[in-house]
Amino acid sequence: MKRYLRLHRIFVVQYLKKLMEYKVDFLLGAIGLLITQAIQILFLGIIFSQIPSLIGYTFPQILFIYGFSLIPKSLDHLLTDNLWMVGYRIVRKGEFDKYLTRPINTLFHVVSENFCVDAFGEMLSCILLLGYSIPQLDMPFHWYTIPLALVAVVFATLIYTSLKIMTAAIAFWTKASGHIIHMLYMVNDFSKYPVTIYNKAVQTIITYVIPFAFTAYYPASYFLTGKNPLFCIGGTVIAGTVMFALAVFVWNRGLRAYESVGS
């Protein structure tokens, strides 16, 4: 474990060196993500200029849920962005061989090789949203709120990462799966809003099948109201654990199916 932490630090330092070389790239990526979020907020602002509440949620509450959804999303983006490359390029070009020859866990190696600082654009919008909405909300606060929030964030991020690992691992069989990861990313947009706006079918899917609702709405609604901790936080922990176990299983099965390009 200690060895892996040290290795991770070395990988990140290497990546940051590479980054210094391309400062503009990083800036453009971060600005792009920031603009994307800003426009979405403007959209919500226009809606709330006409109605006092959206099916019972006030503007600050919606912003809190939206902001909360960006925490696991940006953390996952920051730490595991290289999985996209597995789906798009690494397997198809046979570059995956490299990871198989190293004496460390392949999944760990793939994930820690890249450190996607573009995600700071999302983090900044997340901090702004939470910083703006929390003071306006009357949220229940206890000594355990902060530790629970940390637990929720860790497991919510794990849900994201696990789903990404699973979809990326499909490439071991099909050679490329970037478009499937893309599709998954479109589904995660459902988690930005309260699940109560969707119909039953969509609610069931994003709660029990692709549990994106546990990355944002359920934990966020617990922090807003203090109700249903068992389902909201416990569900996040369970969903994160189950998804991660599944992801590791799929990844390992995929490794067995992997064939190099042979050139």
């Binding site: 893309h182 599709m183 479109m186 809003y193 969707y198």
Partner: peptide, 22 residues
């Protein structure tokens, strides 16, 4: 890609449905 894009349209649909309900 198409399925992904259509889902984005459906999210908008649900958001607007909630707006009109409220």
């Amino acid at each position: 890609h198409l399925i992904g894009e259509i889902m984005a349209a459906f999210i908008m649909y649900f958001v607007w449905k909630a707006v009109f309900l409220s």
